[in-house]
Write a protein that binds this DNA or RNA. Structure first.
Lengths: 180, 180
DNA sequence: GTCTATACGAAGATAGAC
DNA sequence: GTCTATCTTCGTATAGAC
């Protein structure tokens, strides 16, 4: 197992802080001291605070895209929906800070990283919309996808932030019972 | 119809800006110029930037609480759920900036207005949880409530932010078809 | 009660030593 | 490649005129 590099330390610390307090409210001083490095190293490695943030988002987008696209391969109907919900909940559990960030930034506009955020949203919504179109062709795909995505996302965050003693299966069961 | 006061102008401008860019990213200069007043007036009327923000949230919490509590009076089962979804969508339409703010701030911690935000979340979640407990007593009330709330909230914001040409009935139908 | 001018601290970014 | 020291801008908040 490879040693964690300075870059990775910084990304990890920044993601945790920004998910909790927001981008502007998190100073580079905070990030540097949480990562155990000097402020200069942050700028050496990323160039600017917003570039650091964009790197974090891009990394998360890639990870989520791969995971969601793989989840429904070869599946249809409710099996596909079950798999998608389960995979998204698993991603939320593995990367709760990224999930918080997504929720916080999705409906904002005019920020420099808005395009990257839009990508995540479209990727996730698109995965649900594809299942909807395939399973219930008579339903409104995008609005239904938003409802399914919202149910999974908020239940997942409710779990991790406010009821961490629950299991993934508890949450999965609650979401699937609700949307079936 | 009473003239809009300076205070109300400031609240309105601040809410719009903060919903779009976040609290720390919005300066008092921005708020003052959007409201058409001088910066000093903001501090005269509210004391501090964070006090202004708390006033905005408190106002929104009160409004939402009254609306959601009134929505299900005398109703049970699916009628209650329908009424709750419809009322929440109506509130999102009337006060989209407040809805954005809620979504952005709900899963953060350690901010000065966190208690007020927690109140909104608990009020909305509680309204859904009451309906769930009443209608499906065998289901997990809080997780199911989170799923229902999430479905309604994200579908509502998808509507207002990305598909404003849709009608409230479109969104309501999509949400109810999904969660029934 | 609202304005303008200003004080003061915080935070992003850079330079240069090691 | 990482550190410390420093520059500079921006933003909150206050003081005092109107």
């Amino acid at each position: 197992m490879r040693t964690t590099t300075t870059r990775e330390h910084i990304v990890e610390a920044a993601l945790a802080l920004v998910a909790d307090r927001g981008f502007t409210a998190t100073s580079v001083d905070d990030i540097a001291s949480a990562a155990g490095v000097a402020k200069g190293s942050v700028f050496y490695n990323f160039g600017s605070k917003s570039a650091l943030f964009e790197a974090i988002i891009t990394e998360g987008v890639g990870r989520l895209t791969v995971a969601l696209r793989g989840a429904t391969v070869g599946l249809h109907g409710r099996d596909a929906l079950d798999a998608l919900v389960t995979e998204l909940l698993g991603q939320i559990r593995s990367h709760p800070d990224f999930a918080k960030l997504m929720v916080a930034e999705t409906f904002r506009t005019g920020r420099s990283w808005q395009d990257s955020i839009r990508l995540v949203r479209e990727e996730a919504m698109g995965a649900f919309a594809a299942v909807v179109a395939d399973t219930w062709p008579h339903r409104d795909a995008t609005l239904t996808a938003a409802a399914l995505f919202g149910a999974t996302l908020l239940a997942g965050l409710e779990w991790l932030v406010f009821q961490p003693e629950r299991t993934l299966d508890d949450v999965r069961a609650a979401v699937l019972a609700t949307v079936h």
